[in-house]
Design a protein around this nucleic acid. Structure first.
Lengths: 190, 190
DNA sequence: ACCGCTTGCCTAAGCATCTTAGGCAAGCTC
DNA sequence: GAGCTTGCCTAAGATGCTTAGGCAAGCGGT
């Protein structure tokens, strides 16, 4: 019998594609084995268990997303950078719903440390550099941006905006305008 | 053998408590059966299946959350109402992590229609009444509030803010200040 | 070209969970 | 107390996760 050529890497990439097709939730060892024409047990030389597989997909997606964001932000500043950065997140979620769901998979401390999370935080800070916020306000603003992006995209993916006018694209555009205005006049009174 | 007195209602309430204790993910028919000292199959007269059970818990949590929010907002206006409303969400998530996770369970169209989602949207609009936004800006602002609240609380629950200073409470307070300022000067140029 | 070793994928098996079908008796109604 | 409803049961099948151990594919060296 010819071998399938499984590796940890192959499995995780296939897992990312599978997640986009049928959902991250349903991306299981059994499903991947089916797709590779292989017995489920055969995966266990390459992945410790189902949880480990999902963690791997999550780390892969976080890395891929950070790559895209870093490319989009390069050479931009101010609102330009903010919008580009924000759109990377939203487009990624719309284009790769399964991978985006994976980025929200709860990571244990060890996995979180080795994740691209740090890169994401650094990029947020780089964008805010154009708005001249001092600490601790910059940190609060970073957290606001993260909340808005993950919140909007999450609600949009869950269909929260789908059955009402105006369409979500318009809200997205206006919300980015509003965030830009807010960052330029961030209230530092507290 | 004395009967356990199962009903759909009892199961959902117990499910909500179980979710807070061991996580929404692990709140399954088998686990509930264990807690009631009953065979798993016995639940199936009261709940169609595992998915149905989770949907029931989600609807219960959404209703409970709407009740709290509606009580908090009553008699308040402007920033006062905004802060009270926002804190209901955050406190609910911190106090009842499992139920909050349940509120994010993807509902099918039928369940969504019968959910308290409408009440949540109405309350958001009621709060924004104090900020005198016209349509379609009010809708965009409603969506921003939803995004920020669900995003912040979700990230906080996932531990996103836990390993860095300043603590998340400070960010939350300053973000609410910023949102208030933003709503008072919402850019309506686009 | 052959031999031996590594290792990739296999079979076999155990366990947990979800779900359906059909049965018995608890406990209400009369 | 008799009869009926129905709540919970046992039994059984399907599917998924995981471990243990085996066989042979296909690499390295000679």
């Amino acid at each position: 019998m010819a071998r399938a050529g499984l590796t940890t890497e192959t499995l995780i990439r296939a897992g990312a594609e599978t997640a986009d097709e049928i959902g991250f939730e349903r991306t299981t060892p059994t499903e991947l084995a089916r797709r590779f024409g292989v017995r489920t047990a055969s995966l266990y030389s390459h992945v410790r268990n189902a949880h480990d597989l999902k963690t791997g997909i999550a780390l892969f997606a976080l890395e891929e997303l950070a790559d895209r964001a870093s490319e989009a932000v390069a050479g931009r500043a101010g609102k330009d950078a903010l919008v580009a950065f924000a759109n990377v997140y939203r487009d990624y979620a719309l284009e790769h719903p399964g991978r985006f769901a994976a980025t929200q998979f709860p990571l244990d401390a060890e996995a979180a440390a080795s994740s691209a999370g740090v890169r994401h935080a650094q990029m947020s800070r780089a964008i805010l550099r154009g708005y001249h916020l001092t600490e601790p306000h910059q940190t609060h603003a970073v957290r606001l941006l993260g909340s808005v992006f993950s919140g909007f995209v999450g609600l949009e993916a869950a269909g929260g905006f789908s059955h009402s006018a105006p369409d979500s694209q318009q809200s997205w555009t206006e919300i980015l305008d509003a965030l830009d205005a807010l960052l330029r006049t961030w209230p530092t009174t507290s």
